[in-house]
Design a binder for these strands. Structure first.
Length: 564
RNA sequence: CGGAACGUGGCGCAGCCCGGUAGCGCACUUGCUUGGGGUGCAAGGGGUCGCGGGUUCAAAUCCCGCCGUUCCGACCA
């Protein structure tokens, strides 16, 4: 492509609305423009890079036997009512004129197709996928394309007759994802993840470490333990039990509201305090006891209760139900609450907790003697400095961007959509599904986050819209015009995607800066200096390293560099 | 949805406090110039100052409402 004819609007200034490097670069290098919050128009250069990513994804999906579909973005609203996902918060965008919604994902449509055409176990397994635009009602789009209201996802779905089959399909996807992100040149890692409201029995996320990421992950450098904070655990010990439990004792604790204040006031260790956290689960009050100042992990909490709606109880409700404010709630003499507790408190005694009376706490609580705990769960949020649950090395907590997510869904959607097959015995069974997503824009954004400098983008060869960028230093010099045109032509004919800066009246410095901003892997600089010796300069964008190459050696040199 | 900021040619910003001719840099057009790291000179084109209402002789500027965008938080299947 000749830059004199190309639509690649570069900008020197950093757009005010872009705060992270990938967003700034995607705008400055003319990859895309924002239409409205969370919605971007991809310009030719950006779309080119997206297609590179999509093709890598497509090749690896095909390699595991995936079959590509084109599915509708417009779905009947009723389909989503059927699976109970129509009214999930911040999920679905609808259109006003018809009872249609914009699909945020495609389990429903896949299930609908399967319900019509999958009849027998002999029709299974299947791997179905699509690479398409999806829509979500994001309350707050942010960070450029990292969280948009419209985005392109590769979604694939496995359909199986057995749980072993699901495991196999899931493992195939895990392998394919490793290949995809490796080919894309991304530094990524895999974490165990929460299945959340998608339901299902297992899930992993493919992550890129980044301060711009919205997920928090827990990593062990020593043994490789890696988990989303939502499900992460650590090797923290339980609260100790002493030989004798003393009698319960009410103590006056004026104006003590928080666990820290209580620890200071009584001059006791945090571990002897049992913090009460009060929630409603599907409308019903639940008291959660946590050791000391451990933070409740809402994901774990929700999972422990088997899903459903979970919300902190507000102060008024709390006062009405217990007669006390938040800082004085406890498990003793508390009526009408389910009580669950964090595992650290299992069997503990000598604990202090609220008395359900303002300004009073109760001491010497014995979990076994005094509290009717429905069940103990791991409910705490892992904190910095804690030790790995597997190898006891120090854990690292960091932020990450979720590139891909693989789920074992099970039969939730097949049940709702009556997607069944007949097994060997003629029995009707629900199809067992898995669901596997990759954010295409995120591949690009993550690469840019990981690969840029103060001059601009540094594309790797896998995702670069063009492999080579020919710069004609001075279009008033006939020699330069002649040779740069010839180089551009032969590179293109050799199958090397090449950008050619043939703009007249643009000075060398301007072209150099544009080339560094656009960031193609190799720049071929055609100038008077080199041509005197029948040479051009080849510059590697990544390192800035320059070498003089004879005109006759350009093609083999570039081919060799590209194959490295 | 809570908190905050911003909205002025394509982009980045000043002007607003203290009301009175709409300005700067980049980009763009024309001519000359320069030609290895965003050349220089000159002459130009382009703005309902987000929208609506109010105050005033007069509003980019003051007041009210709305909309939009961004950031922090909540949310993120």
């Amino acid at each position: 492509m000749r830059l004199s004819k190309a639509f690649i609007p570069t900008q020197k200034e950093i757009p005010a609305d872009a705060t992270i490097p990938s967003h700034q670069l995607m705008l400055r290098a003319g990859l895309m423009r924002q239409l409205t919050a969370g919605v971007y128009a991809f310009l030719p250069l950006g779309y080119n890079a997206m297609m590179k990513a999509m093709n890598i994804v497509r090749e690896e999906m095909n390699a595991i036997g995936g079959q590509e579909f084109l599915l509708p973005a417009l779905n009947p609203e009723s389909l989503w009512v059927q699976t109970g996902r129509r009214n999930v918060q911040n999920f679905i965008l609808s259109i006003k004129e018809r009872d249609l919604v914009l699909a945020p994902t495609h389990e429903e449509v896949i299930g609908w197709i399967a319900s019509m055409h999958i009849q027998s176990y002999k029709d299974l397994p299947q791997i179905w996928y699509q690479i398409q635009t999806k829509f979500r009602n994001e309350p707050r789009p942010r960070s450029g394309v990292l969280r948009g209201r419209q985005f392109i996802m590769k979604d694939s779905y496995t359909l199986d007759a057995s749980w072993e089959g699901l495991d196999k399909g899931y493992d195939l996807h895990a392998e394919a994802y490793n290949k995809i992100f490796t080919r894309c040149g991304l530094k990524f890692f895999v974490v165990g993840a929460s299945s959340g409201a998608m339901g299902g029995t297992g899930s992993q996320e493919f992550m890129v470490e980044s301060g711009s990421g919205e997920d928090t992950v827990v990593l062990c450098d020593k043994c490789g333990y890696a988990a989303n904070l939502e499900i992460a655990t650590s090797a923290i010990s339980g609260v100790t039990r002493t030989a004798n439990s003393k009698a319960l004792e009410e103590i006056h604790t004026p104006n003590v509201k928080t666990i820290d204040e209580l620890a200071t006031f009584l001059n006791v260790d945090h571990d002897h305090l049992a913090k009460s956290v009060v929630y409603r689960h599907n409308g019903k009050p639940v008291l959660v006891l946590m050791a000391g100042n451990d933070q409740l992990n809402e994901s774990k909490f929700s999972a422990a209760l088997g899903g459903g709606e979970v919300a902190p109880m507000n102060a008024e409700e709390l006062l009405g139900l217990t007669g006390a404010d938040g800082g004085s709630i406890g498990p003793i003499n508390l009526k009408g609450f389910r009580i669950i507790a964090d595992k650290r408190l299992e069997g503990a005694n000598g604990l202090i907790s609220g008395a359900n009376k303002n300004d009073y706490h109760i001491a010497n609580i014995d979990m076994n003697r005094d509290v009717t705990v429905e069940e103990y769960f791991d409910l705490r949020i892992v904190d910095t400095g804690e030790l790995c649950p597997k190898c006891s090395a120090q854990l690292k907590i960091t932020h990450a961007i979720e590139l891909g997510h693989i789920f074992k869904l099970g039969t939730k959607y097949a049940d709702a959509l009556h997607a069944t097959y007949l097994d060997e015995n003629g029995q009707s069974k629900p199809i067992i599904m898995g669901s596997y997503g990759i954010g295409i824009e995120r591949i690009i954004a993550c690469h840019l986050e990981q690969s840029h400098d103060d001059k601009g983008i540094i594309w790797n060869t896998a995702l670069a819209p063009y492999q080579a960028h020919v710069i004609a230093i001075n279009m008033n010099n006939k020699d330069i015009v002649l040779h740069s045109n010839q180089i551009y032509r032969t590179l293109t004919e050799s199958g090397i995607d090449t950008l050619f800066d043939d703009r007249p009246n643009v000075t060398a410095g301007f072209k150099f800066n544009d080339a560094d901003l656009l960031g193609m892997p190799f720049q071929i600089i055609v100038g008077e200096k080199g041509l005197k010796n029948n040479q051009v300069e080849v510059k590697r964008r990544k390192t800035g390293e320059r070498t003089m190459v004879a005109l006759s050696e350009i093609i083999p040199t570039i081919k060799k560099l590209l194959s490295e």
